[in-house]
Simulated assay, not measured.
Amino acid sequence: MARKKTPEPKPAECLVCKGTGEVSRTVQVGRKHRTVGQQTGFCLNCLGSGEAPE
């Protein structure tokens, strides 16, 4: 009799980046910290993997 393999559960998504692995940060320049735009970078919570840390 053959046993059925149960599918492995998918890891939970990171709550900070919502599973994308990237977050947007505001870029500020000058002494008065004037906002000039946004820049994307990898999520420090999941280190860019998109999976929730254990």
Results as ranks from 00 to 15, higher is better:
1 M>T: 14
2 A>F: 08
4 K>N: 12
4 K>M: 13
5 K>A: 06
5 K>D: 10
6 T>D: 15
6 T>E: 15
7 P>F: 00
8 E>Y: 10
8 E>R: 13
9 P>Y: 02
10 K>W: 05
10 K>R: 09
10 K>G: 07
11 P>A: 11
12 A>R: 15
13 E>I: 09
14 C>H: 00
14 C>N: 01
15 L>V: 08
17 C>R: 05
17 C>W: 02
17 C>A: 09
18 K>C: 08
20 T>E: 00
20 T>L: 04
21 G>Y: 01
21 G>R: 03
21 G>W: 01
22 E>Q: 09
23 V>I: 15
23 V>H: 03
23 V>Y: 04
24 S>D: 13
24 S>W: 09
24 S>T: 10
25 R>V: 11
25 R>Y: 12
25 R>S: 13
26 T>S: 12
26 T>N: 06
26 T>L: 07
27 V>K: 11
28 Q>N: 09
29 V>P: 07
30 G>I: 09
30 G>K: 11
31 R>F: 14
31 R>P: 07
32 K>I: 10
32 K>A: 10
33 H>Q: 15
33 H>Y: 13
34 R>H: 10
34 R>Y: 14
35 T>A: 15
35 T>D: 12
36 V>R: 08
36 V>D: 08
36 V>T: 11
37 G>Q: 06
37 G>I: 05
38 Q>N: 12
39 Q>M: 15
39 Q>E: 12
39 Q>I: 15
41 G>Y: 01
41 G>V: 06
42 F>E: 03
42 F>C: 05
42 F>I: 00
42 F>V: 06
43 C>T: 03
43 C>I: 03
43 C>N: 04
44 L>I: 03
44 L>G: 10
44 L>H: 01
46 C>D: 01
46 C>P: 01
46 C>H: 02
47 L>E: 04
47 L>G: 00
47 L>H: 09
48 G>K: 00
49 S>Q: 09
50 G>Q: 00
50 G>A: 01
51 E>K: 03
52 A>W: 01
52 A>Y: 04
53 P>S: 08
53 P>G: 06
